[in-house]
Write a protein that binds this DNA or RNA. Structure first.
Lengths: 343, 343
DNA sequence: ATGGTGCCTGAAACCGGTTTCTGTTAACCG
DNA sequence: CGGTTAACAGAAACCGGTTTCAGGCACCAT
């Protein structure tokens, strides 16, 4: 049983009907008399027939698959992302292809290759070149996740700049902090780039001098430790370390505590994302919550919709709301002051 | 250009040759005269023809894709795993399908469904039922990643029990610690199950009483914080917290430090995996290094080989070596004592 | 001149489904 | 009772490739 060698013609022969009838029964399309239907169902059941995905996909000119492209995965952010994406794809009976372009030279070519195997693709911002993105958009429905869209390529993201402006403003205004250090590589991803510009904007608004250059590291905990080392080695500590995400912030916190500094008394540290650990460390991290899972789910929905509706107009880009989460690492006493910054 | 509507027959017509010739040229198989080859290549180039993946896959009866199934991803472990898997799949021109069964009821059915879309599958141990695993093995080449294989299903993993026995023995013998607490859910995955039994074995060998039940939590940092809370709340702290992985250990460390305990003076904590952060926290974590990336790469190689060679015999299971990494969180002064425990 | 050999080539079959299109039959209607 | 219509079934075309098979042709040895 379950031998995958049996075909629709085989079943047709065994049930004494035509292949068209078998196809109609197995898909529930068209009209089939009760008697023939039963004969076909019996034969299908008896031999454990399951229609071949390739044959079906070829005939339907549809792969039944979605692509997800990211630079390199790490931390809770990507877990959420992938799971959110899957949560929409699986019920739609679409499989999820992943492509991790991490440090590979030919990622443009690989994404283009992926386009020939899926019905639509979500690409993390900053993962492939702009020209490849446009080219991709001609081949399949595409949405940019956490990054700017293009003409025909919509995007799903949050207003990073506004959120970071708000967070930075909180540090500058309500805590009177100065000499803030930004940790993260603006050139690395659109997300960080926007957060950096929000950071700058907050300074500009208050008429402060432009802060010093960011400490350019990657987005994982070890990078936060590294950044803390760099910042705290010889010169006096900055007033606050504003990290591009929670992972970096957690690493920086570990680095700072390891050097005997007290947070927030000696040093303020903030994150971005509101990862699960952010609330659990001591002191709990002040950060910005963004709905990562919903972001990815929304992207999947967009793609599925566009793939199902060939002539559909290019959908609008989507901006989901963020929320400033004030905890103790910024120096606030205790309570959480909620407040949306997104549209 | 690049319009994906052009087919092999179209190119054949334009180049004034047969479809067979086009196919031969585009695949480099068979003999084609220089003149015809050039005509075909020109037509292909001019119209940007790329053979359709589905048509090709259907004819070749091969999907050009590999599946990777895991319970739920989180932390550096899964990053490494996925990237290791991809590092082998991509050069083989196979795309990677992922399936995250996390908490879903019908994961068996979904894995079986995946089997009809890929040439082979790597399944993390403990992700699906045994019967589904056997069934799966009849459909496509399968390998179990980090878990026990079955008759026809090979596995790739490390000797968790031996490694954990060694680590636990180190704590019991060389540090004279007693009253160790194990954090992790043995029922949750074969990995943890084996680590738990290694933990027990080390106690048994020394004639000690059976340690108390494990603190059953998941495998992420927040779970470590939770476990530390539970263990340290009212009663006196255990002599050591032996964590099922580094993520838990890092969480536990944060929890312990947050309570003002000193590690390792007041409390010893150990991990498993040797995640990047393990060496960077203070104190650095004593742990067991396992080659996660290689594990996944090996699994991909196994599957690719089996998928390429239809009649190949079931390959042997593979056990990769681990290494005890002694740092300071166990109470050792400083140096690292390397030493393999795997076969 | 003739038969054999090897290289190219294209027609056609095939992979495993879906869908259109045509034809048959039975039910319904005036 | 003749004619229209709806329901149903199957033959064949189709999706877009690959591969088998047989034939044409040039070259070589007899």
């Amino acid at each position: 049983m379950g031998n995958s060698r049996i075909t629709v013609r085989e079943i047709a022969r065994l049930a004494g009907v035509s292949v068209a009838t078998v196809s109609r029964v197995s898909n529930g399309t068209g009209q089939v008399s009760a008697e023939l239907r039963q004969r076909v169902l019996d034969a299908i059941e008896l031999h454990g027939y399951r229609p071949d995905h390739l044959g079906r996909a070829l005939a339907a000119r549809r792969h039944g698959a979605l692509g997800l492209v990211f630079p390199g995965l790490s931390g809770p952010y990507f877990s959420e992302l992938i799971q959110g994406f899957e949560s929409e794809a699986v019920p739609a009976r679409a499989s999820v292809h992943i492509l991790c372009t991490h440090l590979r030279e030919d990622s443009d070519a690989q994404v283009l290759e992926m386009a020939r195997r899926v019905d639509g693709i979500a690409v993390m911002g900053g993962t492939i070149s702009d020209s490849a993105l446009l080219r991709l958009g001609e081949l399949v429905p595409v949405v940019v996740l956490a990054g700017p869209g293009r003409a025909a390529v919509p995007s799903v993201g949050v207003d990073n700049a506004a959120a970071m402006r708000r967070l930075t403003g909180h540090l500058l205004t309500e805590h009177g902090l100065r000499d803030l250090a930004f940790v993260g590589t603006p050139e690395g991803s659109p997300d960080v780039s926007q957060r950096w510009s929000g950071f700058l904007a907050a300074h500009r608004e208050l008429g402060l001098t432009r802060p010093s250059d960011p400490v350019r590291v990657s987005m994982q905990q070890p990078d936060g430790v590294l950044a803390a080392d760099r910042l705290l080695r010889d010169r006096r500590p900055p007033g606050a370390i504003v990290c591009a995400n929670d992972e970096i912030a957690l690493g920086a916190l570990v680095g700072a505590l390891g050097r005997g500094l007290r947070v927030p008394q000696d040093l303020v540290i903030t994150g971005f994302d509101d990862a699960p650990m952010a609330a659990l460390v001591s002191p709990p991290l002040t950060t910005v919550r963004q709905p990562v899972r919903e972001l990815a789910a929304e992207a999947a929905r967009l793609i599925l919709h566009a793939a199902g509706d060939p002539g559909a107009p290019a959908p609008d880009s989507i901006v989901l709301p963020t929320e400033l989460v004030v905890r103790r690492s910024c120096g606030c006493p205790t309570a959480t002051t909620p407040g949306g910054t997104g549209k």
